[in-house]
Write a protein that binds this DNA or RNA. Structure first.
Lengths: 236, 236
DNA sequence: CGCTATGTTGACTAACATCAATCGTCGTGG
DNA sequence: CCACGACGATTGATGTTAGTCAACATAGCG
C-alpha cells in the first residue's frame, strides 16, 4: 500500500518493489547476509518471504553432507508459503532484501478478503513444476545441455542487464553444479563448450549472453511456466 | 462415512477406507483403469483425489518423450491439492479406487470449518520434500543404493503383506527406472546385486523382502517424513 | 600484498546407457 | 489344453560421459 505521492506507472517499478495483495497482512522488511541460513528443513515455520533484491537458494542435504540445490529464487518470488514443517532449507546466495509476512496474519486476512492465498498457492505450484522439470533435465540431459537450459532460464529471472545485455551469475559454479547435478569442474568445462559452440558469449567468468536467440519468451519447457489465474479461490 | 452396522475399531480399517475431515465436502468415488491418465500437466484442475486402493504415479515428459516419474502415491494419500494448473501429469499404475473431491466445495467448507485445508497443505509439503529428496538421491547415489532406498521406502507405503511378509512392486521395472533415473536393465542388475549382497530376498520378479532390518520406522532420510501437526491454520 | 575462495585444465577411471539377443510370463483364442 | 503373441525382464558386450584427483591460475578481500 506504500504509494508514491504522485501516481506513477507501476510497470516502471522494479520487480521487487511491486506491491501485492498480500501487503495488507502484517509484514516487515528483512536483510540477509550472504550465505545466511533463513530456515532449516524440518523446522516449523510461520513466515512467508517475498524477495525484493538478491537471490535465495532452496536446498536439502544428503546423507554424506553433499548438497542438492532444488531452486534458485529471485526478486518478486515467494518462498516458505506452506505453513508447517519446512520441506527444504533456504539460504541467501547474495545479500538479500526481502519482505517477511506472518502466515497467521495472511490466513486471517484471507478470511476477510478472498484471493489473498492465491499467490502463495501459485508459488508452490511453480516450485513443484520446476522441481519436476529439474529432475527430468538432470536425468536426461548431458552436462552441456543442462547448462544451456540454465543459461536460458536465468535471464528470464534476472531482469537486470547492463548496457551490453549480459546476464551475471549471482551464484558460484559450485552452486550451479549443486543445482544441475554436476561438479564445479564440469560446469567450467560445459560453459567453455557452450562458448566454443557459439551458443553463449562470456565476459569474464560471471557474465554471459545467449547467442542466436534474442527472444524474451520464457514459455518453453526450459523456464517454469507461470501458473496463470486460477479462479477457484473466489476473488472478492 | 460408510460404517459397518456394528461399531468397529477404526484402526482395523484399511488405510484407504479411513474417513477424513474433508469428507464433509462434496465427493464421489472413481475407479481408474491401469494406465488411465487422470490429468495432464498444464491442465486446469479443480478436483482433489484421495486414493483408496491401488497406486498412482505423478510424472512429467521430457522434450524427447522420455518420462520422468516424480512420485508414486498409495492408499490414504491425496494428490491434485493445489487449485490451478496441474504441475505434473497423474496416471494410474494399477487399477485405482479413489475418492474425488471438488476443490470449490473444499474451499467453501474450509470457511465454515477451519483445518479442512490442512491435509491438502500437508500433502503438498510432503510432495515437495520427497521431490527434493529424490533429486538428491538420484544425483548422489549409485544405482544399487537408489534401489535399496526405494526398497526401504516402498514397504512403508504398501502396508499389505502376505503371510511371509514380502512386498510386491505394483509397478514395472521401467516405472521404477523412470523414477530413479535408471533404465530397466540397470534396475534388473541392481536388484540382482542387492540380492547377492544379502540385502533383499526376492520371490519371483515382483516381490521382495528386506534382510537385516525388521524395523517399521520410516523416519530416516529415506522415507519422506510425515508433516506433523501445524497449527497455523486454526483448528475449530 | 598476501591469503583464501573460486575457477581451470589435464589424466584417469568407474558407472551407467545403449544395443542386441534371449528368456519368461501372462493373457487370448483356437 | 495348448499355441501363439506381446510385453516385460534378463544377460552380455561395448562405448561414452562425467566424477575424481591433482596441480595450477585468478580474483576478491582483508
Amino acid at each position: 500500500m506504500k504509494k508514491q505521492g504522485v501516481a506513477m506507472l507501476p510497470e516502471r517499478r522494479a520487480i521487487g518493489e511491486q506491491t501485492s495483495v498480500i501487503d495488507e497482512a502484517r509484514h516487515w522488511p528483512v536483510r540477509l547476509q550472504k550465505n545466511k541460513i533463513i530456515f532449516h528443513p524440518g523446522e516449523y515455520g510461520d513466515i512467508v518471504y517475498r524477495i525484493k533484491k538478491g537471490c535465495v537458494r532452496l536446498q536439502v542435504d544428503g546423507v554424506g553432507g553433499e548438497r542438492q540445490i532444488v531452486a534458485f529464487l529471485f526478486p518478486g518470488e515467494l518462498f516458505g508459503c506452506l505453513p508447517g514443517r519446512r520441506s527444504t532449507a533456504a539460504e541467501a546466495v547474495t545479500i538479500v532484501d526481502a519482505e517477511a509476512y506472518s502466515i497467521a496474519s495472511l490466513i486471517e486476512l484471507n478470511e476477510r478478503k478472498h484471493g489473498v492465498a492465491q499467490p502463495l498457492i501459485d508459488a508452490e505450484s511453480e516450485l513443484e513444476a520446476s522441481l519436476a522439470q529439474l529432475i527430468a533435465n538432470i536425468v536426461h540431459f548431458p552436462a552441456s545441455e543442462r547448462l544451456l537450459w540454465f543459461c536460458r532460464w536465468l535471464p528470464c529471472k534476472i531482469k537486470e542487464r547492463d548496457v551490453s545485455g549480459f546476464t551475471e551469475f549471482p551464484m558460484s559454479y559450485r552452486d550451479i553444479g549443486d543445482y544441475l547435478g554436476l561438479n564445479a569442474e564440469t560446469v567450467s568445462r560445459g560453459l567453455k563448450e557452450l562458448e566454443s559452440r557459439g551458443l553463449i558469449t562470456r565476459r569474464g567468468r560471471k557474465a554471459f549472453i545467449l547467442r542466436g536467440e534474442e527472444s524474451e519468451d520464457c514459455d518453453a519447457t526450459g523456464c517454469a511456466t507461470t501458473t496463470k489465474r486460477s479462479s477457484l479461490v473466489p476473488q472478492s
